[in-house]
Amino acid sequence: MVGKRSLALFAVLGFGYAFLYLPIVLLVIFSFNESRLVTVWSGFSTKWYGELLGNQKILDAAWLSLKIAFVNACGAVFLATLAAVVIVRFRSFRGRTLFLALVTAPLVMPEIITGLATLLMFVAMEHAVGWPEGRSATTVTIAHITFSMAFATVVIQSRLSQMDRTLEEAAMDLGARPLKVFFVITLPIIAPSLLAAWLLAFTLSLDDLVIASFVSGPGSSTLPQVIFSSVRLGVSPQINALATIFVGVVTVGILLAGRLMNRNESAGR
């Protein structure tokens, strides 16, 4: 009985993983396809990678997206760290309820609403105070920080609330002032979660199409925007090649980060 049931469970699990990974695997395989058709195998070739590297539009957009993602990740982790400290440590202050709502709302808010709202705010602000002048990489970065900060907060907050508070008390008891305690004790202990939050914010920004479509200007198309307009016109092996590079980088990055965090975690016991 038990064997049968767990067999069924693992069949579902296998199906689930196949469902999750098959499309990605096929994408990767067909990026090496000779033919323009991405559905019929006609021989091994890396020519699409060559073409991708010659596509200045994609390269520019990729570079811009990376820059935005980097600044966004740093900004989001900074604000999220403060927000996590507020949520976990400041148990009562006026406006806490609103603060909690503001931090969690971007998690579930449909991007299309966030995008529209943020754009309208930028327009109104420009109208009122003259800043920001038009839409640019800056407005994209600001909009990205706002929504990726919510995700980063969740990650950091969960680590911070697990942290043993007596460690901070012990440091204070041994003569360290509160600010020093935060930098010497708290920050190193929650550091793995900061890294995880940074990576999450980075990918969220790199991944976002909808919000960027609203708040980016004419000269500041991000990578997802360029991919989107190209995909709308039809399937292209260049995009497969790009996807393969993406998957490769992310896999390596995640594995490295996972190893690093595992080591820190076991050292942190």
Binding site: D164, T166, E169, D173, G175, I189, A267, G268
Partner: peptide, 20 residues
């Protein structure tokens, strides 16, 4: 007087040794 200026030191029940 905050804990970091007191002439006392404490040994915590959980020991509170800094893991890092």
């Amino acid at each position: 007087m905050p804990p970091y200026r007191r002439p006392t030191n404490m040994m915590f029940q959980s020991y509170a040794l800094f893991p890092h």
